[in-house]
Nucleic acid binder design. Structure first.
Lengths: 208, 208
DNA sequence: GACACACGTTAACGCTCACTAACAGTGGGA
DNA sequence: TCCCACTGTTAGTGAGCGTTAACGTGTGTC
């Protein structure tokens, strides 16, 4: 995928600021005037770009879910049949997402029920497919882990990785690289413990 | 502590239903009429029991934080200086809380910023003390783990344990006992991996 | 019986806020 | 030059909703 170098369009600016504001104060806690002000126009001007406030939220949530799923599918495919490599890569990708797109993570599991039925179903379906991607990788590495437990473990690991939003004041926690490293260890450790601990299939753990 | 057998007071009914509704649809997503209806009275009738909608939320959040902290302090004290026993007990307590008081967990990290400044500061302070309780226990068991990493790991484990709210449809996940067991393994596994993995102090892991 | 008090009710007020109406500047293409 | 699509503005509207007012009713107490 080519990295973008051109300037963001107004729509993109709006989405970005809206995501930040929604994450900070919740969907209902942010007014359209405020979103407009964040991109230098005034409230009603937004309606030249979006049908309404709901439409912004919908586009954000669908976009996140699609991005997560596409990224996951790509990583799983690139692992070329090695469950260990797939799981490593999924964890890596999710960590990047959690650390770099914190506001979106927050939105993702906080405002889902504000969506129209059809949009909510779409997001749920994308989420489910992403989870199943993980479940497949986890069960590839830990074949003795029952499917239900694997699914629950995956949810739990998402909670673990997504914990970055609830942080304390800066300075009391490691920087980005340190956090990425730590989260990686935590996630692998949790899954290994769930999977029986003693016998992961080859390829899952980095060489000592 | 004696278990209550007497009927819940109206205030308690209201708090319980409000917690459920707030967790389901968010603070702003629930009207006072709806809360009233949930306990069989009509909207404004609530004002005989609470100063306002905000007051309900404040009482809920402060109550949760206090309950968590008190429980944690009690467990840490009962461990009698053994960091391993303390950590085990803290994990156990938090799992019980996450499984039994799901709506409160959701509220706890979703609606904190809706509080008045003084209440928010109080809740934050209680939370911080609870975290530090954990950090102490974790560093007792894994003395080589730097404080910052221990704190981040604790936040992450909270995210892991609190993941029960984001579950799929029933039937796709283990029951209560299975979940408790799984969460226990996940949490211990994560912390062990963060703490260096190979050398926890004695008393932290159950005998094989 | 009368008074007080706890606990509800319905009606109405007032504020916030998403959204619409009406209007205006800017710039590229015929 | 004229036109028109695009993008923005300010003023206003209407709905939702938290809150208050005013009023009723049962229950225990002197």
């Amino acid at each position: 995928m080519a990295t973008r170098t051109d300037a963001p369009t107004r729509r993109e600016q709006i989405l970005k600021e809206a995501a930040r504001l929604f994450a900070e104060r919740g969907f209902h806690g942010v007014g359209v005037d405020e979103i407009g002000a964040a991109v230098g126009i005034s409230g009603p001007g937004l309606y030249r770009h979006f049908a309404g406030k709901d439409a912004m939220l919908a586009e954000l949530l669908v976009g996140i879910s699609e991005q997560l799923l596409r990224g996951g599918e790509r990583r799983a495919a690139e692992a070329g049949g090695s469950p260990g490599a797939a799981l490593d890569s999924l964890i890596e990708g999710h960590i990047d997402f959690a650390l770099d797109d914190r506001p979106l993570i927050t939105l993702h599991d906080r405002e889902l029920d504000r969506l129209r039925d059809s949009d909510r179903k779409l997001v749920r379906s994308l989420q489910r497919r992403y989870v199943e991607l993980w479940v497949t990788a986890v069960r590839g590495v830990y074949p003795t882990l029952p499917e239900m437990e694997a699914r629950a473990s995956v949810h739990a690991v998402f909670g673990l990785l997504n914990s970055t939003p609830h942080l304390g004041r800066p300075g009391t926690l490691p920087g980005r690289e340190g956090m990425a490293d730590l989260l990686r260890r935590l996630a692998h450790g949790a899954l290994a413990a769930a999977g029986g601990g003693s016998s992961p299939s080859r390829g899952s753990l980095p060489a000592p």
